[in-house]
Design a binder for these strands. Structure first.
Length: 400
DNA sequence: GCCACCGGTGGC
DNA sequence: GCCACCGGTGGC
């Protein structure tokens, strides 16, 4: 995750936002654009935040393309988590809160989820999702049922792909990519996501709040709780309805890296196996610059990891071949393609070809999802220039 | 005393 | 490096 996004939000309260994350997947469509999926925004109920605004779409559309109506969640105005329709946002300005553009400004204010957005699989524009519940519903089957703008007509009757994106990634916000297909919590249960402060060892924590209010923080605790409260099991609650997968922040270095363990750096001979490769050594995508330079790189892409207990994943989303299967940056097992990677614009190094599977490529250190979104994939193995696009990603932007 | 939050670690 | 898990603890 290279792309970083700054964020900022003047949020003052700590929160418990939940943020559902999403992630994107790859698909093999051959479209011209990079598809991204969804992102939503949302905020936790009781907590308040400030309004948000939408910004131009990520396709670099201009402000003039602002939609006639945006769905903005205004936690202050209504803490219920409902969204507020804002007619004709004429300006595409940054959110009204302070910018978090500096790399890692210290902050003791816990960030919170400001919005959930989902990317349309057809036009790749990001659409704000009005409520966390709706977001969770979309996310649950995002792989099987990619989100499209038309689906937003449920809360925005006239929306279509012709409308400008509701929001785009920029430095004014911290973005995070959610995992796809995370089951909706059982009725009466709440899936809570708490974003940790910058510089923490983890980006966030997921908790489940049982109907009783009891908070559970791991599958082990869930299981134990269900055993102790068989009534839930009788009601149909199953372990498959829980997932502690957390979203990934797009801002680089948001999470403090854990010092490398000594043993891991050496092979049996005592020789250092390899130093961490600099992104630039490994892949051209590492050149991806700051968001400002490459706004399109900010989109979180598909995080092809396999959901914990979750539902099925696309076949071609090769199970993140556990990293151990990584022989080198290039060779992977099944699903392999010779992929030519081009930076769409501002290329600093032309085109490069790699033997990578989509999934594993995404797993490569350094780039991951955003990178996938920002490149053009060409399948060279069959002589065609098919584009390999990501079509479903979910993301949230975090308010701090 | 509780608990939200953070840190650390074992396993992969 | 990532993830799941859980212990510790500061603030209430």
């Amino acid at each position: 995750m290279q792309s970083q996004t700054g964020v900022a939000s003047p949020r003052v309260k700590k929160e418990e936002d939940e943020f559902t994350d999403s992630s994107s997947l790859n698909n093999l469509d051959s479209t011209l654009q990079e598809p991204r999926d969804v992102s939503t925004l949302e905020e936790e109920d009781e907590r308040s935040t400030e309004d948000e605004q939408s910004t131009e779409d990520e396709d670099n559309q201009s402000c003039e393309d602002a939609p006639n109506q945006l769905v903005v969640y205004n936690p202050v105005a209504n803490g219920s988590g409902q969204i507020e329709a804002v007619p004709d946002p004429t300006e595409c300005q940054p959110p009204p809160f302070p910018c978090y553009s500096t790399p890692n400004p210290p902050s003791r204010v816990l960030p919170s989820v400001g919005a959930f957005t989902v990317q349309c699989a057809n036009c790749f524009k990001w659409r704000l999702i009005p409520t966390k519940e709706k977001y969770e519903e979309i996310r649950e089957n995002i792989l099987q049922h990619p989100f499209v703008c038309e689906a937003a007509r449920e809360w925005r009757p006239d929306i279509s792909c012709d409308d400008a994106a509701d929001i785009s990634q920029d430095n004014s916000r911290l973005w995070a990519i959610d995992k796809p297909n995370i089951a909706q919590p059982p009725p009466g249960w709440q899936r809570l996501l708490r974003i940790r402060g910058e510089g923490s060892t983890k980006f966030a924590d997921v908790y489940y709040a049982a109907p009783s209010g009891k908070k559970l923080r791991s599958m082990v605790e869930i299981q134990r709780y269900l055993v102790e409260h068989p009534e839930y099991i009788r009601e149909g609650v199953t372990m498959a309805q829980f997932s502690f997968q957390i979203p990934k922040p797009l801002q680089e270095n948001y999470v403090r890296k854990r010092p490398a363990r000594l043993a891991a750096s050496y092979n049996g001979t005592g020789l250092r196996m390899s130093r961490p490769l600099e992104p630039s050594e490994v892949n051209p995508l590492s050149w991806v610059g700051p968001d400002d330079d490459y706004p399109e790189f900010q989109i979180g892409g598909p995080r092809l990891s396999t959901p914990y207990i979750e539902a099925p994943v696309f076949d071609h989303v090769a199970p993140p071949a556990k990293k151990k299967a990584r022989r080198s940056k290039q060779m992977y097992s099944s699903n392999q393609h010779n992929i030519k990677i081009e930076e769409p614009q501002q290329s600093r190094n032309g085109t490069n070809t790699y033997d990578l599977t989509m999934g594993n490529f995404v797993e490569e250190r350094g780039w991951k999802e955003e990178a996938v979104h920002s490149v053009t994939w060409e399948c060279l193995s069959n002589g065609l220039r098919d584009r390999v696009d990501i079509h479903s990603s979910l993301q949230s932007w975090i308010m701090s």
